[in-house]
Simulated scan of single mutants.
Amino acid sequence: MNSKNIENQGDHPLNNFKIPSHISLKSKKFMAKLLKDNDFDPHHFEILCRVGEAMDRADQAREVVSAEGLTVTDRYGTPKAHPAVNIERDARYAVLRGLRELGLDVAQEAARMPRTRDYGGRA
């Protein structure tokens, strides 16, 4: 873990962790709210940093797709999905997985039941 990301300056969660400077203002605000509302351990903070980075990556890809369009033409003249579409999708999945890993996707009392061997089978 990168020791530059952690500062021990008191008991308040925002004082215990330093959000990396390369993360966008939008993601920093989101992360700061989560840090304020939750009690994170250092390893959880590292996951939250990856969530912020993935949010930024999704936003960057969205800007490219907005500017250049959903499709590009390959060397044979066939339209194909713009590579940034896949980058955006993967980054969005990373955000959702990170939030799920932190336990922020569902209320604790309403957690999903684990899959069983007969999952999806008909009765």
Rank of each mutant, 00 (worst) to 15 (best):
F17V: 14
K26D: 07
M113C: 02
V72A: 05
L14Q: 06
I23M: 05
V51I: 09
P83W: 02
A91H: 11
A54E: 01
D59I: 01
L102K: 05
V85F: 03
Q60L: 13
V72Q: 11
R50A: 01
P20V: 11
D41M: 07
P114W: 07
R92C: 07
D59Q: 06
K29V: 00
L99Y: 06
P79T: 14
D56P: 01
F30A: 06
H22E: 10
N5A: 12
M55F: 13
N15V: 04
Q60K: 14
V106C: 04
D74H: 12
L35W: 08
M31C: 04
N8A: 12
E109A: 13
C49R: 00
A123E: 14
E109P: 00
H12N: 09
A107W: 07
E101F: 03
T73H: 08
R75M: 09
M113N: 13
R97T: 02
G10E: 03
A58V: 05
A94F: 03
L34M: 15
F40W: 03
T78D: 09
F40S: 02
P20I: 08
T71S: 11
G98Y: 04
V106K: 15
A54M: 07
L102T: 07
P79V: 11
P20E: 05
K26H: 06
V64W: 01
L104A: 10
P13K: 10
E7Q: 11
L48I: 00
A107Y: 11
E53S: 02
S21P: 01
S27A: 15
D90N: 15
V95K: 03
E68P: 03
K29G: 00
A32F: 04
P79H: 08
R50P: 00
K29D: 01
V65N: 02
L48G: 00
N86L: 13
A67G: 02
D74I: 14
R75D: 15
R50V: 00
N2M: 01
L25K: 08
D39R: 11
V85K: 05
G69H: 14
K28M: 04
G98H: 05
V95A: 06
S27V: 00
L104F: 14
P114F: 10
G103L: 13
E101N: 07
L35R: 07
L102Y: 08
N5C: 12
G77S: 09
H82E: 05
G77N: 05
L25D: 09
V95N: 02
A58T: 03
M1S: 12
R100M: 04
L34A: 05
H22K: 07
G121K: 14
M31D: 05
A32W: 08
Q60T: 09
D39W: 03
Y93H: 11
D105F: 13
A54N: 12
H44E: 15
E68L: 14
R115N: 09
A111D: 10
A58M: 12
M113P: 00
F45H: 13
E101C: 02
K4E: 13
L104W: 10
A91Y: 11
Q60V: 04
K80D: 01
G120A: 14
Q108F: 09
S24P: 03
Q9E: 09
A107K: 13
D90G: 06
